[in-house]
Measured scan of single mutants.
Amino acid sequence: MEVRTIKVFTTVDNINLHTQVVDMSMTYGQQFGPTYLDGADVTKIKPHNSHEGKTFYVLPNDDTLRVEAFEYYHTTDPSFLGRYMSALNHTKKWKYPQVNGLTSIKWADNNCYLATALLTLQQIELKFNPPALQDAYYRARAGEAANFCALILAYCNKTVGELGDVRETMSYLFQHANLDSCKRVLNVVCKTCGQQQTTLKGVEAVMYMGTLSYEQFKKGVQIPCTCGKQATKYLVQQESPFVMMSAPPAQYELKHGTFTCASEYTGNYQCGHYKHITSKETLYCIDGALLTKSSEYKGPITDVFYKENSYTTTIK
């Protein structure tokens, strides 16, 4: 009895394709271990004539594949690729409408935090270190965002349907971005203890939790000093293409032309909904596939993004 075979390709990165001759009487799992086709788990399936010449994702289970996976995804987590594939199996079914010149995501599976993050990423200057993220990001900007969303979920250790947080998501993504040249110098002034300067680099240099107003941050924000008295913390120097200011959701007025974009969060910790506000020729609110415009805006804002380049204080 002759062994019926077909020729397929296996890959971990969709760049390096490895030619395989597979036995049609055995499952993919018996031949390769966990195997995925377009995100779908085909591990328990036997090869079919229609699979001839198709590319299958496999887990990096030998040295060659491990090197290829690390170079593309910059992670050695053995569960990463499987999590990416199972997320992709959902995100490829989502709709990605162009809204006001940006790629958004039609609401499904509690994905409003991903839509808000995706919209924000198209408006701030950011370059990702893992080629996987950078490639998928370019495709997302062009309207094909399924891979990018699935990668975000995998890097953030999230599953489809789980509630997510924009600030946490951005923080994970910033860790995989090139923020080497970003720098922030802060000064804390206390009447009792004097003053202390701190220099922050990388992710810490672009994120701040405690106030939404970048102007206020430049002037000074009140913080408790270690001595128990009130101290003032203010920005001395900022070198970065953008800054992200966050605070627990509270009524906040966004003035046209003073910011790049913002995240609105309605609801409580267990259950809520994100919308995205962007400042173009007027203010726009993007909620999944829905767009509304207004000249002014007041609502429960939790993150505001500002364009920056270089700032030095005039406070002496």
Score class of each variant (00 low, 15 high):
83 R>H: 07
240 S>W: 00
241 P>L: 05
282 T>Q: 14
308 E>T: 13
274 Y>Q: 03
52 E>H: 13
208 Y>Q: 06
226 T>Y: 13
267 G>A: 07
187 N>H: 11
228 G>Q: 05
94 W>L: 04
305 F>D: 07
81 L>G: 07
241 P>T: 09
156 C>N: 06
279 S>K: 00
204 E>N: 08
223 I>T: 13
209 M>E: 09
11 T>C: 06
31 Q>F: 12
239 E>G: 03
181 S>G: 14
83 R>E: 05
226 T>P: 12
106 K>M: 15
58 V>P: 05
296 E>T: 11
194 G>P: 07
62 D>Y: 06
247 A>W: 01
198 T>M: 15
191 K>V: 15
33 G>L: 05
176 H>T: 05
146 A>N: 03
41 D>C: 13
62 D>S: 15
303 D>G: 00
118 L>R: 04
122 Q>E: 04
244 M>G: 01
203 V>R: 11
296 E>G: 10
200 L>Q: 15
54 K>G: 11
186 L>I: 13
235 L>D: 00
29 G>L: 09
6 I>E: 04
276 H>A: 01
227 C>R: 02
8 V>Q: 00
198 T>W: 12
286 I>K: 00
296 E>N: 07
114 L>T: 03
201 K>R: 14
110 N>P: 04
29 G>V: 06
85 M>Y: 07
38 D>T: 09
161 G>L: 03
109 D>M: 04
56 F>Y: 09
122 Q>K: 01
26 M>Y: 14
33 G>K: 04
158 K>R: 07
231 A>I: 01
270 Q>T: 11
301 I>W: 00
56 F>S: 05
140 A>E: 00
144 E>R: 08
19 T>S: 13
255 K>D: 09
173 L>A: 03
173 L>Q: 04
20 Q>G: 09
107 W>Q: 05
36 Y>K: 02
183 K>Y: 15
139 R>F: 08
216 Q>I: 08
214 Y>C: 03
96 Y>N: 05
175 Q>D: 07
307 K>M: 10
225 C>D: 01
172 Y>P: 01
17 L>Y: 09
288 G>Q: 00
250 A>V: 10
115 A>F: 04
59 L>A: 07
111 N>L: 03
315 I>T: 15
276 H>F: 15
22 V>M: 11
63 D>C: 09
296 E>Q: 12
298 K>L: 15
58 V>N: 07
244 M>Y: 03
149 C>V: 13
23 D>A: 10
124 I>E: 04
103 T>D: 04
74 H>V: 04
36 Y>D: 05
91 T>E: 03
103 T>C: 08
314 T>Q: 15
